[in-house]
């Protein structure tokens, strides 16, 4: 089992303390000290589960602006398009669904990038990532349940599912 590094401890501590201040909503020194003590203890035990790679990756302004652009502009547009599509399918009388599980390749490197792309795909309605597997060459494959399977090779299906998401997530976790 990996030991908790100082960076992981600090990041977990900051998140826990912020959550404590949010719940109590007071700046009373007694509350703050109690919260800090509990957060430090929790971070000591939970840090190694919470942070796996570099904890301060997002403090680089380039990555932070890429994340903001992704979360505020690129992703909501994709989300709205996919939501309208699935809502139209559910409300139309003929119920046009064509479900299947496809296997598409992913260019992401590293745990965080993989997890973020897979979660983005799951969050857009119409596609659910069921599993992530790596083959012998280190190429990651996603198994995706898709409500309307399009014909084509794995690469073409991957482009249809991921759209612009992969480029932006790659920009955040390059």
């Amino acid at each position: 089992m990996k030991k908790t590094s100082f960076g992981a401890w600090l990041a977990t501590f900051v998140v826990c303390a912020a959550f404590w201040m949010l719940i109590t909503l007071s700046l009373d020194p007694q509350m703050l000290i109690a919260g800090a003590a509990v957060s430090a203890l929790v971070a000591l035990f939970a840090g190694r589960f919470f942070i796996h790679e570099s904890p301060f990756h997002l403090l680089n302004p380039k990555h932070l602006f890429a994340l903001l652009g992704y979360a505020l502009l690129v992703f909501p547009i994709e989300l709205l398009k996919a939501n309208l599509d699935v809502a139209k399918r559910a409300l139309s009388p003929a119920l046009p669904v064509n479900p299947g599980i496809v296997k598409v390749p992913s260019k992401m490197k590293g745990e965080y990038g993989q997890a973020m792309l897979a979660n983005s795909i799951t969050l857009t309605p119409g596609t659910i990532t069921m599993d992530v597997a790596e083959d012998e060459q280190g190429q990651a494959w996603y198994y995706i349940h898709w409500i309307d399977v399009a014909e084509g090779t794995a690469e073409e299906q991957g482009d249809a599912i991921k759209g612009t998401l992969e480029k932006w997530v790659g920009r955040i976790f390059e």
């Binding site: 809502a87 559910a90 409300l91 119920l95 479900p99 857009t124 119409g126 659910i128």
Partner: peptide
């Protein structure tokens, strides 16, 4: 509403999951 209708009408469990994503996102 669209997600709830999909949850009630979709033919199998996986498609119902897709419709429930509709509720939990927008």
């Amino acid at each position: 509403f669209a997600g709830t209708v999909g949850l009630l009408r979709m033919p199998d469990a996986f498609c119902r999951m897709q419709s429930s994503t509709n509720i939990s996102t927008l």
